[in-house]
Amino acid sequence: MANQKLAMVIDAPTCLDCKGCLAACKVANNVPDGKWRNWIKGADPERRASSPVVFQPGNCMQCDKPTCVEACPTGATYKNQADGTVVINRTLCIGCGQCLAACPYGARFKNTDLGVADKCDFCAERRKFGLEPACVSTCPTKSRKFGDLNDANSEVAKLLKANRAVRVANEQTRTDPNIYYLGEPGPTNWTVQARMPEAFDFWRRLADPVVKAVVGLSGLGVLAMLGKQLAMPKDAPPADGGAHEEAGHE
């Protein structure tokens, strides 16, 4: 069975900033108060000279080069090869939050109810039952389209073939996202900068070599002892062993 490459194609200019997708997502995924799996950038506009204003819906971009996966120490976050989504295994997640900082889109948050990192997974549970992601099915203007890019007959594949589409990626971090924007995408700013947490870097750069050295040295010592034991089975204290009362020694 061919692998899927699930993606969203978003027609941002048709977004009304009605918050339907945010509400639908929150209910569908039990997202705790104050946290959101998806967003509308450029919402609640101040008055602008240019019109029409473009609101830009978004969510986790299920990147092909996910920095969050790189930052996860436990492998709880991984790229699902079957459908291309970036997944969080909640039982494996230790809630360290390294992936939060590592995501250049701020797509991740700490689910305070569950104590784990959380983010959009294209509504994996709904998809199991043949339902579209909640944000997609609820969207009044159907700004959000969802499907499999590997399926040439899917709506998203057709849209990408027929239209110019851009990805609104964070310039500082190249992640190859899987959300495509049709037409004028709207805001391009990202308030978040991806970074690896200090502790993570310390681990990677310093702690890891040091630990390896310590364990290595111990190992070497033990090996030496073992070698000696094998090589010199009859090692005994010299005759002037003094206080050592060797008499009884076997």
């Binding site: 120490p73 230790i94 809630g95 360290c96 939050g97 390294q98 939060l100 900082a101 700490k110 947490p197 200090e198 502790a199 993570f200 310390f202 681990w203 702690a207």
Partner: peptide
Amino acid sequence: IAWVQWAIT
């Protein structure tokens, strides 16, 4: 979260 991250290291 920073505490947790250092804790892991």
